[in-house]
């Protein structure tokens, strides 16, 4: 019983981090309508940043998170201006291949620099007990940070001027432009926010999850599945999708085998697709 409870709780704690990078992915996809295959690699790079900052320079993992957010937000802005803003006008297959290639470049470049070995911060192993259940301190902190960021993003999108601009650009870009909204700025901010969330997720994830250069592809699949399970077009759906997938992964890893984690994620995804094609919280009806 304790094992089950521990597994479920661990899933929820890890799921917070999955939730925020899935939200970042959904935000970029929702605004630009481009599948950003580099999103997982951004998380991976932030994990490396966290790893080196903590293990080589003795930073507190806490301090890395805001630095990673600012840094990756800026990198996101650069990526948007140089690549994604141009891609927006291209046909889908060009967008697809461009971001896939970019992802391959980042992955291979990182492999060239750091090798394929897994790295983890095994220094951070503080665990506390709660009614007989063992939980990693950093996983709890990670969930806290994730909820904070998700809440902050929600406030930004619903209560601020730029948030309103972003929502307007998503709903109807032409009408928004006719109203005098600077849609390019809205896209820029949305894309950078997505990258910022990837940075935060990576810097948090490294405290309890090992990093390899190729981990980005796995994370991207998770983000994609989380968005579709939660329902495309819904940011809270993406967050909840991330939580659900993490729980499924943990249960699979505990009771079957870690190798089957993503297979079960995919099965769940297929199941949702069959019984509720719009996703759990999807608002958009789909036409064939």
């Amino acid at each position: 019983m304790n094992l089950l409870l521990e597994t479920l709780l661990n899933g929820l704690l890890i799921g917070g981090v999955y939730g925020i990078f899935s939200v970042g992915f959904a935000l970029q996809f929702g605004t630009l309508r481009i599948i950003n295959f580099t999103h997982g690699d951004f998380v991976m790079l932030a994990m490396f940043l966290g790893f080196f900052a903590v293990s080589q320079y003795g930073w507190n993992p806490f301090a890395v998170i805001p630095v990673a957010m600012v840094l990756f937000g800026l990198v996101g802005a650069v990526f948007f201006t140089t690549v994604f803003n141009r891609l927006k006008e291209e046909p889908h297959e060009i967008q697809l291949i461009a971001t896939i290639t970019l992802s391959a470049i980042i992955t291979a470049g990182t492999q060239g620099l750091f090798g394929q070995d897994a790295r983890s911060l095994d220094t951070i192993t503080e665990i506390f007990q709660l009614g007989g259940v063992h939980l990693g301190v950093w996983k709890v902190i990670g969930l806290g940070i994730s909820l904070l960021l998700a809440g902050g993003l929600w406030l930004l999108l619903t209560r601020s001027g730029i948030g309103r601009d972003i929502r307007a650009s998503v709903d109807d870009a032409v009408a928004a432009r006719l109203q005098g909204i600077n849609t390019r700025r809205a896209y820029l901010v949305a894309f950078s926010l997505g990258a910022l969330l990837a940075g935060a997720a990576g810097a948090t994830l490294i405290t309890f999850y090992p990093v390899t250069p190729s981990v980005g592809a796995n994370l991207l699949v998770l983000a994609f599945a989380a968005v579709l399970v939660g329902g495309a077009g819904s940011l809270p759906g993406a967050f909840l999708g991330g939580l659900i997938l993490a729980v499924v992964q943990q249960v699979t890893a505990t009771y079957q085998s870690p190798a089957l984690q993503n297979a079960y994620v995919f099965l769940l995804f297929l199941f949702i697709l069959v019984v509720k094609p719009a996703g759990l919280f999807g608002r958009l009806a789909r036409v064939d």
Partner: peptide, 12 residues
């Protein structure tokens, strides 16, 4: 690895 890096960059 460097081969992937090379041809991906060219393709990009």
């Amino acid at each position: 690895v460097y081969s992937v890096l090379f041809y991906s960059t060219v393709v990009f």
